[in-house]
Design a protein around this nucleic acid. Structure first.
Length: 518
RNA sequence: GCGCCUGUAGCUCAGCUGGAUAGAGCAACAGCCUUCUAAGCUGUGGGCCACAGGUUCGACUCCUGUCAGGCGCACCA
């Protein structure tokens, strides 16, 4: 049950019935002060001008309509026209009951019409993954989990750039290393080149396998690894360009073939075929995106590093053009994640693939663990640059948010081991402010999941989990769970079971373990 | 020069798409373990939300400009 949405619907209806106003802009907030209720809306203030009525008058109508709903114990009109809603204890108790019995609490089907292809990481198979790839891996995986939690069909894809100059350079570098010759000036110089040179088989495949191994260790799994080479070998690049030529989106200039992306918002037209007859990387990439559309996806999401943000305009334009020419409704979204700078004891660590000094993602995982790495990479909004200090992440171990949340889960598990009678009682469980605080957070969990999914912001989940954990730790310090009175024990048991279930669920979204013991 | 992102407590960051008294965590200080995990809890101090204008009943949030930092501006991939 999503009370935020329910409330929105009810208010929407009330506005329509009373004032004939149709609007979807109904802001619902979680008040920071509990004297302002569990939910609040400023809808009366926001619409007073349009309706030419005082905010109070509007608020009173809405409050009077909604007071018929038995989910609220109280509705206040406060200040200039805020409406504050208080959920009844009964509803809170039902929420707790549901969150215990339902394994998939938080799940909904609001995005069920979306058939999404989510592309992320897509590292060049020319070296090991680094911490930046780790950020996209962690964020991408969490976003995919969130979207499918909301009913979307999500296909996770990794695009392998296994064609082009950088691959030739890689092969030359490995070949040189094999024969004990100096590596070409503009080749790859990392120490991993020596390693790959010792392996049998194709260096590109070997490097790809190394990347896959790292991702597996990171618990990031893709549905498909899509090879760029296949686009060349089955002629899709050529077909794509023919398609664009035929539909009139191309022109020739200075011996090159240009694509009129400016018609759809790009700031510059782009070259598809260079004057030497070779395809550009972009030409191949749009063939790939055409392929995505042909596979039937109606939503295309890409996660890119900030160093590629210049790419956004042209690729969005290309998708728009294809959608138009192919007569399809395609929603596309390119998420730009800011870069990660790796530090050790406050000293920056070079990450260049060519220096050989870089620290790989694998090394970071080995050093601080998958859980802490994933949590740290996901806990910040993607559009802020991230300074990741390895020593700090390790040193902080005791005051780390990830351990704080995991500890709450382990603590509950510990208590559960000591309870012999696992009888649950969900009546009258809201018997203290601490219990109510937990209950209201549990009620909000599905709402948080939906908001995090729609905005593609998994950091909202970590934020929420820390808040819920704090509420639990407060409860735990204030109230003994195992008591002489069986009924009291059963009631408190239901609360901690609910918390445990949600912690486990929430951690799963961001790919972090929920330990039984610590 | 142009474009994108960022600027909030000493530090690292939230701030729910314009609302009520701007919140956490670290760090600092003062308390809480004979009972379920103290990796926890309670309290105190700490703010010109980069700066200057503007829109609004109301701005950390929207607009304009300035300053500072990051990243881009290829017939490279």
């Amino acid at each position: 049950m999503n009370f935020k949405l329910l409330l929105k619907e009810k208010i929407k209806k009330s506005l329509k019935d009373n004032f004939g106003l149709e609007t979807d802009l109904i802001p619902i907030t979680y008040p920071e002060v509990k004297e302002f209720g569990d939910y609040a809306t400023t809808v009366a203030l926001a619409n007073s001008k349009i309706l030419k009525k005082s905010p109070k008058e509007i608020a009173e109508k809405i409050a009077s309509d909604l007071s018929k709903e038995k989910i609220f114990s109280k509705i206040d009109i406060a200040g200039p026209g805020y409406i504050n809603f208080y959920l009844s204890d009964k509803i809170l108790e039902e929420g707790i009951k549901l969150s215990i019995s339902n394994e998939n609490y938080g799940k909904n089907d609001l995005l069920k019409d979306k058939n999404i292809i989510l592309e992320y990481v897509s590292a060049n198979p020319t070296g090991p993954l680094h911490i930046g790839h780790g950020r996209w891996a962690a964020i991408g995986d969490s976003i995919a989990n969130l979207l499918s939690l909301c009913g979307a069909k999500v296909h996770r894809e990794f695009y392998i750039n296994d064609a082009g100059n950088q691959i030739n350079l890689l092969r030359e570098s490995v070949e040189a290393a094999k024969n004990g010759k100096p590596i070409p000036e503009n080749g790859y110089h990392g120490s991993y080149i020596e390693e790959v040179a010792k392996m049998d088989g194709d260096p590109v495949q070997n490097l790809l396998e190394m990347q896959k191994k790292t991702l597996a260790k990171f618990r990031v799994n893709f549905d498909n690894y899509f090879s760029e080479l296949t686009l060349h070998s089955n002629g899709e690049v050529k077909k794509t360009i023919e398609f664009l030529k035929k539909s009139g989106h191309c022109y020739e200039l200075d011996g090159a073939l240009w694509f009129k992306t400016t018609e759809f918002g790009d700031d510059k037209d782009r070259v598809l075929i260079k004057s030497d007859g070779e395809y550009t990387y972009f030409a191949v990439d749009i063939a790939y995106h055409k392929n995505k559309i042909e596979r039937g996806f109606n939503t295309i999401i890409n996660i890119l590093g900030a160093d590629h943000h210049g790419y956004v305009g042209r690729i969005t334009a290309a998708i728009k053009i294809f959608a138009k020419e192919m007569n399809k409704e395609i929603e596309s979204k390119i998420l730009i994640g800011q870069l990660v700078s790796l530090f050790r004891n406050g000293e920056p660590v070079r990450m260049s693939k060519r220096t050989g000094e870089m620290i790989t993602l694998e090394e970071v995982i080995d050093e601080i663990g998958s859980d802490a790495s994933r949590y740290f990479l996901v806990m910040r909004k993607a559009d802020t640059p991230l300074d990741f200090d390895i020593e700090l992440a390790k040193k902080q171990t005791e005051e780390n948010p990830v351990f704080y949340v995991q500890y709450a889960h382990a603590r509950i598990s510990g208590v559960l081991r000591n309870i012999h009678n696992k009888q649950i009682v969900t009546d009258s469980i809201i018997d203290s402010p601490e219990a109510r605080d937990i209950a209201i957070r549990i009620i909000r969990y599905p709402e948080i999941c939906l908001d995090a999914a729609i905005n593609m912001e998994p950091h909202r989940i970590t934020q929420y989990l820390e808040d819920l954990s704090a509420a639990f730790h407060r409860f735990y310090n204030q109230h003994r769970i195992i008591t002489e009175d069986e009924n009291t024990t059963s009631r408190r048991l239901s609360i901690i079971l609910a918390v445990k279930n949600i912690l486990k669920n929430g951690l799963k979204i961001i790919g972090v373990e929920a330990p039984e013991k610590m």
